[in-house]
Design a protein around this nucleic acid. Sequence first.
DNA 1: CAGTGGTCTAGACCACGCG
DNA 2: GCGTGGTCTAGACCACTGT
Lengths: 243, 243
Amino acid sequence: MPSRRHGIANDLRNQITTGRLKPGERLPSETQLAGQYEVSTATLRGALAMLQGEGLVEKIHGKGNFVRRSLRRITYRGGWGTQTPQTASDTNLRITVRTTKIRARGHLTALLQVSTGSHLTEFHCVSYEAKSPHSLARIHVPRDLAPAAVLNEPRPYEGAEARFAALRPTSADIRETVSARLPTPDEASTLRISPALAVLAITRVTADITGRVVEAALLALPGDRADAVFTTNHATDEGWTER
Amino acid sequence: MPSRRHGIANDLRNQITTGRLKPGERLPSETQLAGQYEVSTATLRGALAMLQGEGLVEKIHGKGNFVRRSLRRITYRGGWGTQTPQTASDTNLRITVRTTKIRARGHLTALLQVSTGSHLTEFHCVSYEAKSPHSLARIHVPRDLAPAAVLNEPRPYEGAEARFAALRPTSADIRETVSARLPTPDEASTLRISPALAVLAITRVTADITGRVVEAALLALPGDRADAVFTTNHATDEGWTER
DNA sequence: CAGTGGTCTAGACCACGCG
DNA sequence: GCGTGGTCTAGACCACTGT
């Protein structure tokens, strides 16, 4: 046995995956568990930390440790597939959008290729699946490209992107940069995930046919249930080899 | 101050980013630092854990804590761009390849679309940049598709993939699935990253023109310095809209 | 061997959620 | 107020790295 933590984590993990502990169920308190396993609370918390990192357990301060309800996986499709989030419209995603007028600064100026201080519209989108925070998107658009229609009519964040795409069928280039990192405290609390659970961060820059950047989207997806899929098909596409 | 840990982490972070502690330099021992900040060793270790998670500090058991040398960023290029890792051949990547003959089981059977127990060759590749582990790749190929030439002549892992691609110019489809997760203990130690630092995991499945899967690559890149970039170009590629 | 980080203990006290 | 997790202490002992 590598360590007591690992042993305890393995045991609890088994109990969860075999259904002995059911989704949503509350685990015994840390003090109780520490007693059962005959370890100190610190050690037991170490074991729980591992399970949090795997997304199996959710800790709620003042309430307890809960077996995480296994949520539908989130599949982000890269390239032009973004219009169809997962199986798209058959999912029950509730969405909140907060629209803010901001000025470009820092990274955004580079992403959008605009000068510092230029006018932008920011859409701060959080999608929920059955009350559970699901994904987080911050979409930035040059102010003159954000039609009034977009400011209302909230839809899932991928939907928002789809709308933008629909408004500009001339969109020509998409660059998606994917990275893995721990969530910012802000992201951790809006997504209600542990600060120890990795997020999949996708920066998506869309340019129109003239090369002007029309959208920069910063997405954060919980690492325990999100994948990004990119497909490259050679048969229908010879142009790639020239790159 | 949110907590002692945060305060100490902030202080050390400043010392690092302002250059007061230089890259590669060893920090005082945890006992000494705990004394300086007048906290217990557990608390001090908490602070260091945060910095590890940010990739600022590297712990080496039995030696000490070191300011991480800022390493060149790793850029994985999706689609057909994989042949050129970053600026490709001008990088000094040392590589180790361990070749194993294994039988397909579990996920691999699904990825490679072969039956359980069928013969595979596994390439376990670790690349190093100036002694620092850099990336980890486990590449699986049906045994009959792994030519003898591939078994020697080690090159960077992307190079290995490029080789495969070169051997099969008929490769038709690539599906890359990207996710963010914490490293397995195994990955954490080979990459010498903290178990708390997220990794970017890329599963790359390549099929030839007949649809046969010729390669499944499981890549793990340290989240603090790796990005995966996917580019979709509309102008040179009308075929995509049909998908 | 000495010095380092890794794990663990058996407590203490604080902050949060809920009745 | 009570039970929960969150932070912290002041040690102990183990495992790894170097000489």
